[in-house]
Amino acid sequence: MAELGRILLVDDSRVFLSVLRTALSEIPGIEVIGSAPDGETAVNLFRTLKPNLVTLDVEMPGMGGMAALEVMHQQNLTRPKHEQTGIIMVSSLTGWGASTTVRALQAGAFDFITKPNFPNPEENIRQLRQQLQTKIRLFLLQRAPGNSPTTVAPPKPLPSIPPRAIEIVVVAASTGGPRALEQFLPEFSRRCRQPIFIVQHLPASFTASLAENLNRICARPVMEATNGTPVDPQGIYIAPGGFHLLLRREGTQLVTVLNQHPPENLCRPAADVLFRSAASVCDGRVLAIVLTGMGNDGTRGASTIKRAGGVILVQDEASSIVWGMPGSIASAGGADAVVPIGEMATFAGRLLTDSEGFR
């Protein structure tokens, strides 16, 4: 029997709390067990009601969403993974809301939803219900004890490197990605000489905030990619939300390309698009790293890189928030190694050392 979703709602707006309740009322298996108008009340109810899910408003007076998240996350760390509470941030699409939400994702929130702002109230409720149902089902599925999406062999030894240097590194992530990138990228950026290209599934204003946050903690410049820009060998480029990121070569110079072609795997940017482009433009001299995320974006592109002679690393299940994207590649036999996020920078570093691209 599927686990019942016991949800605590946290928002300072009574109107929006009512809208949330209405949206959730038509999702089977969901029970709203309480609501709170501020962070302090939410933290107290979190301890007493023990919900398995919380929707947490980013912007609240008094103890705000970030402060409440910090307390809830610390309590989560004392519990086994299958007993932890999923915290879903509720954000506006303003610059401040996007920036705070990205910080919340890096600080331990499971995922986020955006507050719809359509003129039609029924459309707002429909959009909210659609967002919530997807996030809630995904969290409850991965929370179930022993519910592994697939079984894979133990991590392989360090893969052999093709007899040529790795020219670029491509990275893909979705749910849980901002936190994984925060754990992995600062150390990796101190070691890696190659340009790095990242697809993280986020809306437009959120990828800009992600780039700003990572730029503050990395040894190399992190920026949103722009169309037609020559690639700086020291640059770390994040695909902007709403655009696919590709590469082209003009003589010996790599150049970033953005387009708004149809989504792939329901995503734009899509990892498959970047991976295919990288394999073609760099003749397979590519290291691909696939981190935590929902779905299977990146699986076909990783296969293309592999056939061209590149190397594929994926995050392991235990350290992933959702083992969808990395698990899909691992189960298809496309991963050269399955690596915990805490070891990924060192593991990839040793690999690139052998390709003569690492300091």
Rank of each mutant, 00 (worst) to 15 (best):
M1F: 15
M1Y: 07
I7G: 03
L8T: 08
V15E: 02
F16T: 15
F16N: 11
L17Y: 03
V19H: 08
A23D: 04
L24W: 06
S25T: 15
S25L: 10
G29Q: 08
G29A: 13
V32T: 11
P37Y: 06
V43T: 04
N44G: 08
N44K: 02
P51E: 02
V58I: 10
E59V: 14
G62R: 06
G62K: 00
M63E: 11
M63V: 04
M66L: 11
A67R: 06
A68L: 00
Q75F: 14
K81A: 03
E83V: 00
Q84F: 14
T85C: 12
T85I: 15
G86S: 07
G97W: 02
V102F: 03
A104L: 04
L105R: 09
F110D: 01
F110T: 07
T114K: 00
N117P: 05
N117C: 12
N117A: 08
P121R: 04
Q127V: 15
L128S: 05
L132D: 12
L132A: 11
I136E: 14
I136Y: 10
Q142R: 15
S148A: 15
P149E: 14
A153M: 11
P154K: 13
P155L: 06
K156Y: 01
I161L: 07
I161N: 07
A173I: 00
L181Q: 14
F184P: 10
E187G: 07
C192E: 09
Q200V: 10
Q200R: 04
Q200E: 14
H201G: 01
P203S: 02
A204N: 13
A208I: 07
A211V: 08
N213D: 13
N215R: 15
R220D: 02
R220S: 02
R220G: 10
R220M: 10
V222D: 12
T226C: 12
G228H: 14
P230T: 06
D232N: 07
D232E: 11
D232K: 07
G235R: 15
I236Q: 04
F243C: 13
H244M: 03
R248G: 02
R248V: 12
E250M: 07
G251Q: 03
G251C: 04
T252V: 04
Q253K: 10
V255A: 15
T256F: 03
L258K: 04
N259R: 15
Q260R: 12
P262H: 12
C267W: 09
R268E: 08
R268Q: 02
P269G: 14
D272T: 03
L274I: 03
R276C: 09
S277P: 14
S280T: 09
V281A: 04
G284S: 09
R285H: 09
V286C: 11
T292F: 01
G293Y: 01
G295S: 06
N296C: 13
D297H: 01
R300N: 05
R300T: 12
T304D: 09
K306N: 05
R307S: 13
Q315K: 01
Q315R: 07
E317A: 05
M325C: 03
G327M: 09
S328T: 02
I329H: 00
I329Q: 01
S331L: 15
G333T: 13
G334T: 01
A335F: 05
A335Q: 13
D336K: 05
A337G: 11
V338W: 12
M344G: 10
A348S: 15
G349D: 08
L352S: 06
T353N: 07
S355H: 13
S355N: 06
G357E: 10
